[in-house]
């Protein structure tokens, strides 16, 4: 787990287990909360196994159509498994974990290793 301390570091050749894209709109309260929440979750459960991309739709408005965004913030889980869309500031942690396929009772995701 040590080699992947930086979540935004270039991915390993094999690629990280979790690919998460978070689309936010500038520094709105919802967006800031969402960024904080996803970072928390990643650090807590997925440390070292994820790639998180945070994109500001204000900066790249074309993204909104391409990614079919409606509600913002939206977190798109591209892998593993099916693509899931999570709309909201990700404060409902239980639902977020469920949607991401993380078992919270297992405590630290590290246990899988």
């Amino acid at each position: 787990m040590d080699p992947f301390t930086d979540p935004l570091a270039p991915p390993e050749p094999a690629g990280p287990e979790y690919v998460l894209h978070l689309y936010i709109t500038g520094a709105t309260p919802n967006s800031t909360r969402a960024v904080r929440n996803i970072k928390d979750i990643c650090e807590q459960y997925l440390k070292g196994r994820y790639e998180l991309l945070i994109m500001d739709v204000f900066q790249q408005p074309a993204l909104a159509q391409r990614e079919d965004l409606i509600g913002v913030p939206t977190l798109i889980k591209r892998s593993p498994g099916l693509v899931r869309r999570l709309v909201g500031d990700l404060s409902d942690r239980e639902r977020v974990l469920k949607a991401l396929g993380i078992n919270p009772s297992a405590g630290e995701g590290v246990r899988y290793e």
């Binding site: 204000f58 408005p61 965004l69 639902r95 977020v96």
Partner: peptide
Amino acid sequence: DHVHVDRSEIEETGEYDLEGLFIRLGHA
């Protein structure tokens, strides 16, 4: 711009707004 809305794909996880729609429309 086709806006695809599918309940089964959307998981509400907290507060949000429809700014995505605004941006899309504004951009278009």
